[in-house]
């Protein structure tokens, strides 16, 4: 009986505290906006994170990146700041968050020269950031626009791939987008005037593979990975005369004969007298496919 009375007393005390609003006990209402803040790093962050405002050094480092050599000195621009593991879940911690940011910021001002050191990895950082930005833009605020703003086809396709959509869906998506006024990539219009989605897909995948291998955005690989690409049929080792079939596109031919849709320009260049400015090829047209070693 006494226990029960004590328990009710406890209940009363807690309810009163709740109404009066003792900081740290109040779970609802008062601290709502702060609660959204989530736990911030409760200690100064990392040694490698650059200053928020040390823009000039960071930029200089990024600009130098192309010609620089070495491995270790890249500013960890995109490295996520490690979070303190011991932060209480749901902790209300606006102040320590701001403190952490500014502690870091001020410390880095003093050490700015370290950031400015030649940074060969900076391009990678920039690339990573750019990819994150593009992902954010495409899945974020820019995405749900009703017909008004065109997106890049590659973006649409990448997103659809990420969503696990079928090839048929992607084909419909791509051609619907082109119908809306999104510009079709050069060399990817088929004889029917549709976008050659299979080739578009293959080139996007190839590009992603290139990027994974750190080849950056080099438009043409040095070595064509024969056999790597299921769409490719054979390598054009000598000049060929090819008769265009329904559904062909320059990109598809480049993929078929060179293993990379990006080589469509070579076919275009060899057939300037036959192909109009729209880069559209016609069924039955005879095209010269230059030998690969002449490219």
């Amino acid at each position: 009986m006494i226990r029960l009375a004590l328990a009710y007393l406890g209940l009363a005390v807690i309810v009163i505290l709740g109404i009066v609003g003792i900081p740290g006990i109040s779970l609802f209402g008062e601290d709502e906006p702060q609660a959204k803040l989530a736990p911030a790093a409760s200690q100064p962050v990392t040694e490698t994170a650059p200053a928020v405002d040390a823009v000039t050094p960071v930029l200089a480092a990024l600009a130098r990146a192309a010609g620089a050599t070495g491995e270790e000195t890249a500013p960890a621009v995109a490295a996520p700041a490690p979070q303190a593991a011991a932060v209480r879940p749901g902790a209300v911690d606006l102040h320590s968050m701001t403190a952490a940011i500014l502690t870091e910021l001020n410390r880095d001002v003093g050490t700015a020269p370290a950031v400015i050191a030649p940074a060969p990895g900076a391009d990678d950082e920039l690339t990573q950031m750019s990819k994150a930005v593009l992902q954010g833009l495409r899945s974020g605020a820019a995405e749900p626009a009703p017909a008004q703003k065109p997106q890049s086809l590659a973006g649409l396709v990448t997103q659809a791939l990420a969503e696990g959509q079928s090839d048929a869906y992607i084909d419909a998506l791509v051609n619907e987008a082109v119908g809306r006024g999104v510009s079709a990539p050069d060399g990817l219009l088929t004889t029917e005037g549709k976008v050659d989605t299979a080739v578009l897909l293959a080139s996007i995948v190839a590009r992603a593979q290139d990027e994974e291998q750190g080849e950056g955005d080099a438009p043409l690989p040095d070595v064509v990975p024969v056999g790597d690409n299921p769409v490719m049929q054979y390598l054009a080792t000598e000049d060929l005369l090819y008769t265009v079939e329904p559904g062909d596109s320059l990109g598809a031919l480049a993929l078929r004969f060179y293993g990379d849709a990006a080589y469509y320009t070579a076919i275009l260049a060899a057939n300037t007298d036959r192909i109009g400015t729209a880069n559209r090829i016609l069924t039955g047209q005879r095209l010269i496919i230059p030998a690969f070693n002449k490219l």
């Binding site: 928020v52 823009v55 700041a81 952490a100 920039l126 690339t127 994150a132 930005v133 954010g136 833009l137």
Partner: peptide, 27 residues
């Protein structure tokens, strides 16, 4: 830069670090 964005930003904002808009960024 991303690590600062990650620590807290305005709801609805998209992180586009200034460096990604510089002319030297191939993207």
């Amino acid at each position: 830069l991303p690590e600062w964005n990650a620590k807290g930003t305005i709801p609805g904002a998209v992180n586009v670090p200034f460096a990604t808009l510089a002319p030297n960024n191939p993207y």
